[in-house]
């Protein structure tokens, strides 16, 4: 018995959402990509978090290396050392990456990125081209490295002793959390001190630098749109109170600021050169940069492909203006 609710899914709707790729290659679209193309695309789309050689930046995932470490202390689990199926990499890159700009890659680009990740794991040669037909020929080193959940046999049969008295002779402390001391302190207390420190430093170093920026009347609707569009940037940039440098510098007061001036952020050489020659991030310059970062500044660390819509650029500028006011 059914309730007759819902409506038939149209073929084009199923096609739009049914994108997952299975270990046997089911779901792979036509296309191909080479290691060489992958290297460029990876540098542009992925390297900001995963490093030029898929080695990972900071706390972001390492995608290469780790062979032979799975039975060591702190094993390094990468596509090469751990992932059992290549389909998983293709599927994940295709549907969930780049972080903050998911589902923006063409099939050929995905093939190329996956080929490059394989290359960085020494699993294919530099002239390798990955396509739908040779997909299953790639051997994943850890394909045989998994067993099904065996807790019933390995654990449950033994975890049933509820001893109530005199269960052991002695109790000695073998490890203490306070020795490691990695627990976050109370956020309130912490941010209080940090803010005070900042004020003191700022006061000491730059006594008068205030009213250069005139307060512009901003369109609240545009600002709201900008806040939304800014999500693309959030993977790397923070803005507002308590913002910190992440993969990219904080953007407080960026509009009207001299380039390359955020404390504690390591800029690319071209950015430092531009800063020295007096680049100021007025709306015009920032708009040009955001439209095509790599074209605007060859060699910038900002591995963002750019904002295609002028509307988005205007909105983001308004948003950045608003948070700085």
């Amino acid at each position: 018995e059914t309730y007759g609710l819902g409506r038939p899914a149209l073929p084009e709707e199923v096609a739009a959402w049914d994108l997952d790729v299975s270990p046997d290659g089911t779901g792979l679209p036509a296309g191909s990509g080479s290691v060489l193309d992958g290297e460029d695309i990876f540098a542009e789309q992925c390297a900001v978090c995963h490093g030029d050689f898929a080695e990972g930046v900071g706390n972001w995932p390492k995608l290469a290396g780790g062979a032979g470490t799975l039975d060591h202390e702190d094993p390094l689990k990468t596509v090469g050392s751990y992932w059992p199926y290549l389909s998983t990499t293709w599927d994940y890159v295709n549907r969930s990456m780049p972080f903050g700009n998911a589902q923006s890659l063409e099939p050929d680009e995905v093939y190329a990125i996956v080929a490059y990740i394989l290359y960085s794991n020494d699993l294919v040669d530099e002239d390798f081209v990955l396509n739908k037909d040779n997909f299953l020929e790639v051997e994943m080193p850890n394909a045989g490295g998994f067993i099904l959940d065996d807790r019933a046999e390995a654990e449950y049969v033994n975890f049933n002793d509820a001893c109530m008295t005199n269960c052991k002779d002695s109790v000695e402390i073998t490890m203490r959390a306070l020795v490691l001391d990695v627990t976050p302190e109370e956020t309130a207390a912490k941010s209080g001190t940090a803010a005070e420190d900042q004020v003191t430093e700022a006061d000491a170093e730059q006594p008068v630098q205030e009213p250069v920026v005139e307060t512009v009347a901003l369109d609240p609707e545009l600002v709201a749109k900008g806040a939304k569009a800014f999500k693309k940037c959030k993977a790397c940039h923070q803005v507002g109170e308590g913002a910190k440098n992440r993969t990219g510098p904080i953007l407080n007061g960026i509009i009207g600021a001299t380039a390359g001036q955020v404390d504690g952020f390591k800029y690319s050489k071209p950015m430092m050169a531009a800063a020295e020659s007096g680049l100021v991030w007025n709306e015009q310059e920032l708009a040009a940069f955001l439209a095509k970062p790599k074209k605007y500044m060859k060699g910038t660390k900002m591995s963002f492909s750019g904002l295609k819509k002028e509307k988005d650029i205007a909105a983001i500028l308004a948003y950045l203006q608003s948070v700085s006011q």
Binding site: S87, G145, I147
Partner: peptide, 30 residues
Amino acid sequence: DAPVESREETSKYTDNLANGIARKWTWVMD
């Protein structure tokens, strides 16, 4: 007819044992 073996059920949410072999499909929370 078969699992997808997505990123969240292969590279993550699998349990590495001392010998380097990992348990998968460890769904139940004991």
